[in-house]
């Protein structure tokens, strides 16, 4: 049967920075084709398609809180597969190979991680579950 796609509304303007992304204006309606854990969602509109940041979209049918996981304060072990230097105060700076714990997997692709006493946001696409081959 036909695949029913969820419609989302853009809450802000988004300027694309690569050819696979899709620019948005606040209020644009898009259908979501694929939701990536990285926080990039593949969307289509009337005559365009491309990747869009999940945090710029809100569901037309009310908040889909069911998709958002609860924080797990015990933490899930992950390894940093790519270093990142914090840009904002609430982000973490980590080096490749460091072991951290993920305590909250957010749909926008910025996960809350813990390293010793410090916590902050880190891009999920630069993390890999401990013990998994890359």
């Amino acid at each position: 049967g036909p695949i029913v796609l969820q419609t989302y509304r853009s809450i802000a303007d988004f300027a694309k920075s690569s050819t696979t992304e899709m620019a948005l204006q606040a209020g644009d309606l898009v259908d979501v084709v694929e939701k990536g854990e990285s926080g990039w969602w593949f969307c289509q509109a009337k005559n365009k398609r491309g990747w869009v940041p999940a945090s710029y979209l809100e569901p037309m049918d009310g908040p889909d809180e069911s998709e958002e996981q609860e924080p797990n304060y015990e933490g899930e072990p992950f390894v940093v597969i790519r270093g990142y230097t914090a840009v904002e105060d609430d982000e973490m700076t980590l080096q490749e190979g460091e072991a951290i714990e993920v305590i909250h997997k957010l749909l926008d692709g910025w996960w809350v991680v813990r390293k010793e006493e410090a916590t902050g946001y880190y891009p999920s696409m630069y993390l890999q579950k401990s013990g998994q081959a890359q």
Binding site: I11, A12, F14, S17, S18, T20, E21, A26, V33, E34, G36, S38, G39, W40, F42, G50, W51, P53, A54, S55, Y56, E58, Y84, E88, D108, G109, W110, Y121, P123, S124, M125, Y126
Partner: peptide
Amino acid sequence: TIKQPPTQPPPRPPAEARRKQP
């Protein structure tokens, strides 16, 4: 086939989204 997603992390949520967070 769906193109590969961008290799850069997505931007942090816009101010509009942050205001909605509790």
